[in-house]
Structure formats: structure tokens, C-alpha cells
Design a protein around this nucleic acid. Sequence first.
DNA 1: CGATAATTTGAGACGTTTCAAAGCGGGTGG
DNA 2: CCACCCGCTTTGAAACGTCTCAAATTATCG
Lengths: 249, 249
Amino acid sequence: MPGPQVETTEGSKAPVGKGDFLFPGTSPDLRQLLKTHHRGFRAGSILKVEAEESGAIYCLLSGWLALSKLTEDGERQIIDVILPGEIVHPSSADSHTSWIQIETLCYATVAVVPQAAWARLEAADPCMRRIEAVTIAASLSRMSERMLRLGKGTAESRIAYALTEICIRLKAIGESDVCDYHLPMTQQDLGDFVGLSSVHVCRTLRRLSRSGVISTADHMDITIHDLDRLAGIAGVDLDRLRAEIISAR
Amino acid sequence: MPGPQVETTEGSKAPVGKGDFLFPGTSPDLRQLLKTHHRGFRAGSILKVEAEESGAIYCLLSGWLALSKLTEDGERQIIDVILPGEIVHPSSADSHTSWIQIETLCYATVAVVPQAAWARLEAADPCMRRIEAVTIAASLSRMSERMLRLGKGTAESRIAYALTEICIRLKAIGESDVCDYHLPMTQQDLGDFVGLSSVHVCRTLRRLSRSGVISTADHMDITIHDLDRLAGIAGVDLDRLRAEIISAR
DNA sequence: CGATAATTTGAGACGTTTCAAAGCGGGTGG
DNA sequence: CCACCCGCTTTGAAACGTCTCAAATTATCG
């Protein structure tokens, strides 16, 4: 695990995602808010530590985030991966500390909006409510799909599910028309995401390649050759999954 | 797995939970709404099937619910356990099908409130917003704590965590002052909850009893003799956990 | 081009599952 | 009221999947 510092500096790679266009039904007020609090974070930055004081909402404009938890002995579980256009509410039930650690998986631009400003916007613009409800529903849905495979489910189906889920979500935001994308994670990260050791992630990935379902190029460039077969291995109905985790628009 | 039917009949056992008193800052309107849509379900009823059309919000007044997912080959993962005073929003991102199966773990009374009525109440009473936000935050927090242990974490720590979480939540609603409660689940259910086979749940439970941390009596009566030690095995900081999953009030 | 991090592969250890069978308990019908 | 039955728990033994350790290989970056 690298030792990432809290960074605000501009990063190196071209950003993924198209900013405001990602947020549906965007009011001028929201656009303004996002622009005002817009910040860049380099890969591996920690935006928020778990149990830390938290008074802001995080809107991802470009790049990838990981929400993670750490065990006492320093092992990491990635609870969710956040893509451009998604919103993170880090406040837990006590409404002032964070339930999660927020880190960047690559260079990312994020609008860190203070809760007060967010609440004002919410009150002013009724359609914000719907966006939020849908965001939360999608996040619960995909978390529970992953839990299902963490509990029951082999290494193959966990990896296959993760690749399928990411693929579908990327398509929904127009990042990948074909089933071909770059995962900005190491095999270690992917292991922390699906509950496997990095060694076994490697083996599983290679088994999937050998069987021709996917192929991988340098540093986690994934090509899905047969999405239906991958979904089969994941044990997921693609249409049902899309309905559950993709906003209706 | 039993074959539970969709039941609406009154059940047999005395209900757990005190109805309206559980919902904080309860407005007369909410009380009225809960009373109107109040229904009883016997143990093992399925209130909602996954991917089914869903147009209601479920407020649990008494008893226990399980939110579960099924794999293609019929295995079940319990995603969350719901206690009296908690609210379930089954709508997924497409906002009209359910992301989860809802079932009763014992006789339960539930207010099944149509979305329209709920939305009206939400619009009328601003404090509903806060209740909902806190409910969702708590649910995300405890789901992610469980994911952390599903991914990393031994059988012992998974079971220990589940028992700890339930204990803390029961205390918060005044159901159990001492660390002594009845779990309305079989060992199979508990296994489906923490991602273990029922056989291994049994072994783990007995190991925990033999070491004196807990003891179990007939059909899942749990007594926690040393909550701190149990929390230690679970790898959880009790105060941090309470802050994350218990509403501030 | 050397240093450092990430991937790949092998072999053995470990924890959990599966299969099987034996106790226990509670409910039902005779 | 007893006997039976069925579901749940308990225990053992073997099989299986994943992890750990270790070393070789390959990419990345200064």
C-alpha cells in the first residue's frame, strides 16, 4: 500500500469525465456550486479519513474515487468505487463524522461542497431530491450485489461481477461504448475491492483471459470480449442489473 | 430454506418494539400514516421479492426484517437486518423495481406506506428529511462494516461483529439493557448474514461460548458476557461504531 | 539505465465447505 | 399423553479453494 498524502495539487493525466454535463437536470445554481468548489487531486490522495470530522459533500467531476475501510491490522476493503457524476455523503448516523475513507484511484477533480451550501441548494431546487434518492439507491444496489458475491460466490464470479458492474456504469456515462476500458487500480486494489489476495486476483484474471472472455493489457487495460459470458460467470442478469444500478435519466 | 408465502395474517408471538414511539420527532401526520398502513406479518413472510415492482416504503414497527439477495442457484445472502423504528426504501435506481427481497424473521408489524403518501409527508414535514438521511447513513455504515469483515476477517470476527452490532442497535432502541437477547434467526440464517455455512456458524458459536465471551441457550438466545472482548474479536472500536450506526437523537 | 513497484508463477499451509450421521426438541395426530 | 416426525443443532472426516511465502519476470519512473 502506498502512503498517500492529502494532496490538492494538479496531477499528471488527462481527466476522465465531462464535469457538469454529468449531473442530470443541472440547474444553474448547481453548476455554479460545482464550479466554485472544484478542486483537483492527484492519484493516491486521501480526501477524507474514516471517523474524521466531515462537513462536506463530494461530487466527482472526473476520475475515479474509492471508498474504503481499514481493519485494525491495516488491511483495506474497498467498499465502493465512485465514477464521474456520482455523489458521496460521508456523514454517518451521528451526522458529523465520516463512515468511510475517501481516496482517489487516479487524478480526479472533485467539488467539495460544504453541507450548508448543499442544503440550501436542496431546499431551493426540488429536483435535487430525486437525483440524491437515485444516487443512494444505485449505491445501495451495487453494494448489495457485491455483498452477495462476497458472501457466496467464487473468486471468478467476484472478479467477473466487478468487471461487469464497472463496464455497465462506464457505458451509462458514455465513457466506454465498447467493452474496453482502463481500470485505474492495481491488482492489489482490485483484490481489496472483491475480497481476494492480489495473487489470487492475478490467477483469476489470467484464467478469464485464457478462456477468452476478457483480455488484459498493460496495467489493467481490460477488454471484455463476451459480456454475456462474463455476466454468466458473475451470475448476473444484465438487464436486471442495469435497472438496479443505472439512473433512469 | 422454508417456503414462506406472502402472509398478512396475525401471527403467534408477542410483538417486539413499541410502534410510533420509535420514530423520533414524530409528527401527528406520520403517526396517522403509520397507523393507517399498519399490518402484521407472520414469521417467514416475504413482503417483497427482488426486482418486483415496488411502490411503497416499509416502516418497521415491531419484530425483525431481513433484506436479502439470492444467487442464481438459490443461495441467499442477508444484506441487512432491520429492527423496529427503521425504514426500508426498496426502490432501485430505475425507481420502480425493488433492489432487495424483504422478509420477516419473526412476527412483525410493518407500515407499508405508498410512495405518494410518503412524499406528501416529506414535503410537509421538513424534519422527515433528517430522519431519512440519518437512517440511510446508518444503513450504509453498518453494511460497509459488514463488507469489511466479509472481505478480510475470519469466521470468528464476522460472528463477533454481527453479535456486537445487533447488541448495540438493540440497546439503542431500549430492547436490551443488558447484553442478553434472542436472535430470531437459525444458524443457517446467521450464516447467510455473515457469509458462512451453517455448520461453521455452529462451530464458531461454540468456540466463542467455550472461551466464555458469550453463551447461547435454546434456539439462539445470546448472552454476551464480555462485550469488550467480543468487540476485540470483531476488531471494532465500540464508541466509533456507535457513532457510525446509531442515530444521534 | 538502475531502482522500485507491480505482475506472474509455484508449492505448501490453512480455513472453510461439504457430506454424513447422530442428538435434541417441539409440534401434531393418533 | 405418548410416539412420531421434521427441522435445527452438533460433531467428525475429507475435499476444496484461497492465502501465504518466496522467487522470477516485467513494467515504470526518475
